[in-house]
Design a protein around this nucleic acid. Structure first.
Lengths: 147, 147
DNA sequence: CATAGTTCGTTCGGATTTGAACTAACCGTC
DNA sequence: GACGGTTAGTTCAAATCCGAACGAACTATG
């Protein structure tokens, strides 16, 4: 119960701080930032919309909306996929990579300062282990539901 | 980094599951549920809007909107505050308490099953301790900003 | 090749959320 | 009591978000 309340509170407030920093430093929402990060991670800096939605944990409609916005600002480019004509590649542009480079240091600083540095090495270890297990369990669950 | 990613993922997905359960069992959003819970906890099952907003971690305008909705459904009643005529009491109605009673078991079950039961006693202990410390640090920060 | 069932991404309408005004009421000080 | 500075809660327009429904394209099976 105490753990749950702490989790709930920490995630709300941390989310708020992160949103703040990203908006201030680069005019991005956290969701948009996550999209850019996943694209940056990906092979060739591009992903298909569905995969991107799944990885960034957003609904398909929300991703459509977000990518539309990012495309309007020139941070992402959309192009048809030859292999599957239903699919669409979302691709990080140079401008997108630059925007990412601009906000990332501040983002890392916020996460470090507010989460990481508050924890001892042992706690960090336990937290990482435990929360990834929880996340994995949750991913399984939503996978099950999809069938 | 691993800890942060786990935290982010777990909080997103858990939020999603909770939203789902509450909507299904009682037509409530997680935000509305939090409001009702705080009112239930409070002395006389009522709180002033500002305090409620702060505790439930929602903006004032959002709370106004949410309480308006809850009032329309008869789960909450609003009444003027005699001591301070700017202030408004938000008060849990019997119907609101009933709605809460209806969804709570399912809510608890979800949190237990997806978070608590995934963790060992030690992990739970560490998590509670660590995350409450993080939350406290974050509360301080937003308090500082207010000045 | 047909055809039934899936998956892809978008669109739509409505609900929700945000932040910046705004009004009314409070408080301390003169 | 009158004034400036705060605080409580609401309102508004704009931005964002959701889930259901959709058309188009894929796949497996006969």
């Amino acid at each position: 119960m105490r753990a749950w309340l702490g989790f709930l509170t920490a995630s709300h407030l941390l989310e708020h701080e992160i949103e703040r920093q990203l908006k201030r430093d680069g005019g991005l929402s956290h969701g948009e930032f996550e999209v850019l990060v996943r694209l940056d991670w990906a092979e060739g800096h591009r992903m298909r919309m569905s995969d991107l939605a799944r990885e960034a944990m957003v609904s398909k409609s929300r991703l459509t909306y977000q990518v539309a916005g990012l495309e309007k600002d020139g941070l992402v480019r959309r192009r048809p996929c030859d292999a599957d004509r239903r699919a669409v590649w979302a691709e990080l542009t140079d401008k997108g990579a630059a925007a990412l480079a601009r906000v990332r240091p501040g983002h890392r600083a916020v996460v470090r300062e507010l989460l990481i540095e508050q924890l001892s090495d042992d706690e960090l270890e336990v937290l990482g282990e435990a929360l990834n297990r929880v996340a994995e369990r949750l991913r399984e669950r939503s996978r099950q539901r999809r069938r």
